[in-house]
Simulated scan of single mutants.
Amino acid sequence: MGTTELTPQADRKSIGPLPAGHPPVRKGRIGVLLVNLGTPDGTDYGSVRRYLKEFLSDRRVIEIPPLVWQPILNLFILTTRPQKTGANYRKIWNTELDESPLRTFTRGQAEKLAAALSDNPDISVEWGMRYGNPSTASALDRLLQQGCDRILTFPLYPQYSATTTATANDQLFRALMEIRNAPAVRTVPAYYDEPVYIDALADSLKGHLAKLDFEPEVVLASYHGLPKVNLEKGDPYHCHCLKTTRLLRERLGWDEKRLISTFQSRFGAQEWLQPYTDKTVERLAKEGVKRIAILNPGFSADCIETLEEIDGEVREVFLHAGGERFAHIPCLNDSPEGMTVIESLVRREVQGWI
């Protein structure tokens, strides 16, 4: 004899009566998982070292053979870099919550998305990081515990790269490999040319420029850099970045001299995508440009690369070279413009599941 205890959606999902002693059945919910790059748990040496070790051990991020790379990483980079990186994190750390801004903003994005999707009680929203905490696996586990048998994962990278989007998906799939009754999975594609994203960038940029007490002569769209060899191997990131800038330029009605693309955050001796952001602002200042602004269209949330590197180091380079006014335009973060992008793409990608 079977029982008549059904899950809340049994009438719609046709689960039917379950035999006595049957394992629990998921409730048929949809899980939305926001995934960002990651952050150390603290600014101390140990926390930063753990984060950097996980990050720089990813074979998609560092493609040097492990037999060559791991001794360099462990004997040299991880003995010195954590101190410098930790000091930089301390400059931008959210001391009130004792966490990095990236974690603060990503949590805000998830909470606001959950509120926006509250019109459908069958959707759960969680957030996780590719490196560090909360981990992707822990976020997936929370969704499964809520009865989600369908997962929409949203790598929060507008432009696709194997070093970002693919690594986020890799981590989710690794976690799924440990689950016997794995859920169905969809992943939000890169959204570098989505009209809702371009509109959000344009509206955010115009809104922040209107608040400045000066008008920039040049605006830079600074993207995270990538070794040039990655482009040569077929990574589409460079093309995605340039298209984002072109579409944003067209949306604003600006010319190629007013809005330009640059690339930041390079390290190591090999050539990276050019033009370099720091070298570009130095050149502009020496050519007589006195007022600039920089936005970061490749980052969905402000982090160490935008708050410390751009608004700190690059600002200093520009002013030291003769520039006079500098503005960093915040990322979309969990602003109304940013949330419109995330909500719109999620609602589109869950169609057919609702």
Rank of each mutant, 00 (worst) to 15 (best):
E54C: 08
A221D: 07
I260P: 04
G31K: 00
L52H: 11
N94A: 08
Y45S: 01
N74V: 02
R60K: 15
Y223R: 03
E282M: 01
Y160V: 00
R81E: 04
L140F: 06
P65E: 10
L307D: 03
E250L: 12
I342E: 01
D255Q: 11
G323W: 05
G253Q: 11
E178Q: 14
D122T: 11
D302T: 07
D235L: 07
L259K: 03
A210L: 09
H320V: 12
E194K: 01
R283E: 15
Y45V: 07
V61R: 14
D334G: 00
I260S: 12
E316H: 14
L75G: 12
T187K: 05
R266Q: 09
R348T: 01
V48H: 12
D199W: 01
V25I: 14
R174N: 14
L295F: 13
P8M: 04
I64C: 04
A321Q: 08
R325N: 14
A10H: 13
A115E: 15
V188H: 00
P134Q: 10
Y45N: 14
A116L: 11
I151A: 09
I292A: 15
Q270H: 08
L248Y: 04
G234W: 00
I123Y: 08
V314I: 15
I62M: 06
V35P: 00
R90G: 14
V32Y: 05
P216S: 06
D213Q: 11
I30S: 03
K279D: 15
A162M: 06
E337K: 02
I342L: 13
T39E: 03
T244F: 00
A190Q: 07
Q146I: 09
R60N: 14
T153W: 01
P19F: 05
E313G: 04
G253L: 12
R180F: 04
E111N: 09
R246K: 15
A269C: 07
P65A: 11
G38H: 02
W127Q: 02
F55Y: 15
I62F: 04
G147K: 07
I260T: 12
G253M: 10
I179N: 05
G323Q: 10
Q146L: 14
E126Y: 09
P24G: 08
R180C: 05
G225Q: 02
L212Y: 07
V289D: 08
R29M: 15
Q274S: 15
L97V: 09
M177Y: 03
L67R: 15
K112Y: 02
N36H: 13
S135L: 11
T104L: 13
Y89S: 05
S118H: 09
E215R: 10
D141V: 05
G132R: 03
F318E: 14
L319S: 09
W69V: 03
M1F: 07
D255R: 12
L73I: 08
S47W: 01
L284W: 11
W127G: 02
Y131A: 06
G108D: 14
E313K: 14
I294Y: 01
I179F: 06
Q351R: 12
E232M: 12
K206N: 14
D149I: 05
L259R: 03
T163D: 02
M1G: 12
R174T: 13
A168I: 04
F263P: 06
Q83H: 10
T306E: 00
E324D: 12
